[in-house]
Computed example of a mutant assay.
Amino acid sequence: MLAILIGIVILHVTSLILLIISTSVNAWRVVGDRTTDLWYNCWTSNEGYHCVGASDADWLQAVQALMVLAVIFCFLSFFFFCFQLFTLEKGGRFFFTAAFQVLASLFVMCGAIIYTVMSPEDGDYGYAYVLAWVAFPLTLLSGLIYIILRKRE
C-alpha cells in the first residue's frame, strides 16, 4: 500500500512540475533565434538577449489563464489529497481531489488546443509546448486514479 501511495504522489508531483515548467518557460514556439511563450517574445542580437511582452491577443490571454488555472488546480488537488489522506474515513474515495485534478487536465488540454489552432504557422513548437501535452495525460491519469482510489488503513 505504501508503494502505491508513493507512486501516486510521484505521479502528481511530476505532473505539477511539468505544468509549472510549461507555463513559465520561454519555449512554446521557436523560429530561428526567436522564441515565444505565453508571456514574452525573446531573441538574440549583437547587443544581447532581448524580450518584449507577448501580444495582447484574446486567444493568448485565454491560453495564459487556462495554464495558470491548471497549475493552481493541480496544486490544490495535491493539497486536498494530503488533507483527505488524514481526514477521510476508511473506505472513502478521493472524489474532491479527483475533480480538481481532472479539471486541471482539461484546462491544460484546452489551453494547448487553443495555442495549436491560433498560433502562427511559422517555426516549430518548443519543448514547453510539448511538456504541456505530456502533462495532460499524466494529470488526467492521476485524476482517474484518485477516482478509483479508496482510503485504507
Rank of each mutant, 00 (worst) to 15 (best):
I4L: 15
I8H: 09
I10V: 15
T14N: 13
T14V: 13
L16G: 15
L18T: 02
L18Q: 03
L19F: 10
I21H: 08
S22F: 02
T23N: 13
T23R: 12
V25F: 01
W28L: 05
R29H: 01
V30G: 07
V31N: 00
D33P: 11
R34S: 00
L38A: 02
W39K: 01
N41K: 13
C42S: 01
T44V: 11
T44L: 14
S45D: 12
E47V: 14
E47L: 14
H50I: 08
C51Q: 02
C51G: 01
S55N: 09
D56K: 06
D56G: 06
A57W: 14
A57F: 13
Q61M: 07
Q64N: 06
Q64H: 05
M67E: 01
M67P: 00
M67S: 02
V71E: 09
I72C: 14
F73W: 11
F75S: 14
F78E: 11
F80R: 07
L85P: 08
L85V: 10
F86E: 04
T87S: 03
E89Q: 06
E89L: 02
K90F: 03
K90R: 06
K90H: 06
G91W: 01
R93H: 11
F94W: 05
A98I: 10
A99P: 04
A99V: 10
Q101F: 01
S105H: 01
S105K: 00
V108W: 05
G111V: 03
E121L: 11
D124K: 08
Y125S: 04
Y125I: 00
G126T: 03
Y127Q: 05
A128Y: 09
A128P: 10
Y129N: 09
Y129R: 08
Y129A: 06
L131D: 10
V134A: 06
V134Y: 01
V134C: 03
A135H: 04
P137C: 15
P137W: 09
L138N: 05
L140P: 02
S142T: 15
S142W: 09
G143P: 11
G143S: 12
I147S: 15
I147N: 14
L149W: 09
L149Y: 11
K151R: 08
R152W: 01
E153L: 15
